[in-house]
């Protein structure tokens, strides 16, 4: 009873839509055994530009949502992902050449990380902010606020958990993200984009680019409308040059991390993409 499969076209995810690269380019994604799996879109600098525009447009709404709401949306991602565990496990099994159990464990870990970060949405500000006892008649409080548009070079040696580990914390505070997927394992990223598109994540909050990080990253690092760049997956690139490019507009920069623990869950990953804002106001009974 064999049935002829209907393969999926893997495209980019920009501004809530799934466009092909404006350049028309694709590249072959192959299985661990070298078998052809799909033609992924090979994003161009213009796609990166469009993604930044979409991300910038989404910041106000996402940052302006209540923390409770952001937490629910992030949790919703976990819920939807949970419902599609089998699909993701199969995809990972094929592309990474691991056992189904190992692939499934990766999916489970990704889901759990969404849940962990979802729970932080309405708490990190309480931990990272504080009231300041200034010596004067002032109310004074410091709160972490989202940095704005975050560019992320996702970990390159993982299909899903690396991608999620880099993406989720950047979203918690209300930033929007342009994330460049693993070049070798891009399929789960685009499948995850389908999850995001159906999980109440406002369009433009997450934008996923597939293709060559070496080609796209410099454009993101130098883009003046990007506030921070997470080079966690850029260890194989000339990341020092990227950091130098980023310095032109004083971007916040996170360094590459290697190995299976790259982008491990940490509150610091949330606060890294925040700015501490301190507000003073006079106080008096008179």
């Amino acid at each position: 009873m064999s049935r002829l499969a209907v393969p999926k076209t893997y495209k980019l995810y920009i501004g809530g839509a799934f466009p092909r690269s404006e350049s028309g380019r694709t590249y072959e994604v192959v299985a661990a055994d070298g078998r052809f799996l799909a033609n992924a879109a090979k994003a161009s600098r213009k796609d990166a530009r469009d993604a930044v525009v979409a991300a910038r447009g989404a910041v106000a709404g996402w940052a302006g949502a209540t923390a409770y709401n952001r937490g629910q949306v992030l949790y919703r991602i976990a819920e939807v992902l949970e419902g599609r565990r089998a699909q993701f496990a199969a995809e990972i099994e094929e592309v990474e050449g691991v056992s189904r159990a190992v692939a499934a464990a990766q999916v489970d870990e990704a889901i759990d990380r969404w849940v962990w970060y979802a729970g932080w949405a309405d708490k990190f500000a309480q931990v990272a902010g504080n009231a300041n006892p200034v010596a004067g008649p002032y109310f004074n409080i410091s709160v972490p606020e989202p940095s704005g548009v975050i560019a992320v070079i996702a970990p390159q040696d993982s299909s899903l958990v690396g991608f999620v580990s880099a993406l989720a914390p950047a979203l918690v505070a209300g930033n929007s993200v342009v994330i460049v997927a693993s070049e070798r394992f891009p399929l789960s990223s685009i499948s995850l984009a389908e999850v995001l598109a159906t999980s109440d994540v406002p369009k433009g909050v997450v934008n996923v680019l597939t293709g060559s990080p070496a080609e796209i990253a410099p454009w993101l690092a130098s883009h003046a409308d990007v506030n921070a760049i997470d080079l966690v997956g850029a260890g194989g690139l000339d990341w020092v040059s990227l950091e130098i490019d980023a310095a032109d507009t004083l971007k916040r920069v996170l360094r590459p991390e290697n190995g299976p623990d790259a982008a491990a869950p940490a509150l610091g990953r949330i606060t890294a993409f925040t700015e501490t804002k301190t507000v003073w106001h006079t106080k008096s009974l008179r």
Partner: peptide, 24 residues
Amino acid sequence: QVTAGRSGAQRRIEGADASAEASA
């Protein structure tokens, strides 16, 4: 406790450091 990893997130961003208690 928290899937281990070094807190690279704190690396360059001073403001972030204030609240890394949960990170390892």
